[in-house]
Nucleic acid binder design. Structure first.
Lengths: 117, 117
DNA sequence: TTTCAACCTGGAGCGCGCTCCAGGTCAAGC
DNA sequence: GCTTGACCTGGAGCGCGCTCCAGGTTGAAA
């Protein structure tokens, strides 16, 4: 059981972002204290870790929502969820290749300056 | 000498983006026909290729402007330009490492689904 | 000569993903 | 009991990087 600030610290999302994610339905059924404050469980945290992974790899929020919806819909969506992640992973591979290519260009440009000075 | 549409095609930027880059001073001294149409030279194109590289690796436009300014200021800014690119390259390295790490997580998640089905 | 796609300008608008704010509530420590 | 900092809500605002639009001009081909 984690307070909002602790969940934020552990996930790397800001408090505002956690609230925002709940508001748009990416997070759901976040527990509350009697006083109305959010309580994050380990399971919530593991969702946040997944979201962190997906965001860091460039998945749009709308697609994460889709994934979360599928997961909520039950076991029978496992195949579709897998496919969604697989498509995303393929895009990430392309992204990594592009990044590597452009990084190489960048390094070459820097070497050009090195030869000057 | 390239027409705008050809420069767009070769650089991968849209016509609107090329105009935007000129407007904000990222591109400067783009030639014009007597009728007022832009004419891109090979040198302009090589700038665009560099901008493509920097954008693809996540450099903010403001920083590309700074780089372009330095280049316009003359030879004596070469060191500063090199340093700017070097700092950027270091950030790109971190970005690549993060991306790789999160890609690995993603692949692991997908393997989890594979074991289910 | 006419046509029409490509181009021009200035400026508004947009999509994304937060981020901030006002005004109020809660709860742990003194 | 009071203070104080963490938290709450609804909604507005923002920064970035374009993207689109209206209304007009250009110039090569038919």
């Amino acid at each position: 059981m984690y307070a909002p600030s602790e969940a934020a610290r552990r996930s790397g999302f800001s408090l505002d972002t956690l609230r925002y994610y709940e508001k748009i339905g990416l997070l759901s059924d976040i527990g509350r204290t009697s006083g109305g404050r959010r309580v994050f469980t380990d399971e919530d945290l593991s969702w946040l870790v997944l979201f962190r992974c997906l965001r860091d790899t460039g998945m749009p929020i709308a697609e994460m929502c889709r994934y979360a919806e599928l997961a909520r819909a039950g076991e029978h969506t496992a195949g579709e969820r897998r496919a969604l992640l697989e498509r995303h992973a393929a895009r990430v591979e392309e992204q990594m290749q592009l990044l590597q290519r452009q990084y190489d260009h960048l390094r070459e440009k820097i070497r050009f300056y090195d030869r000057l000075g």
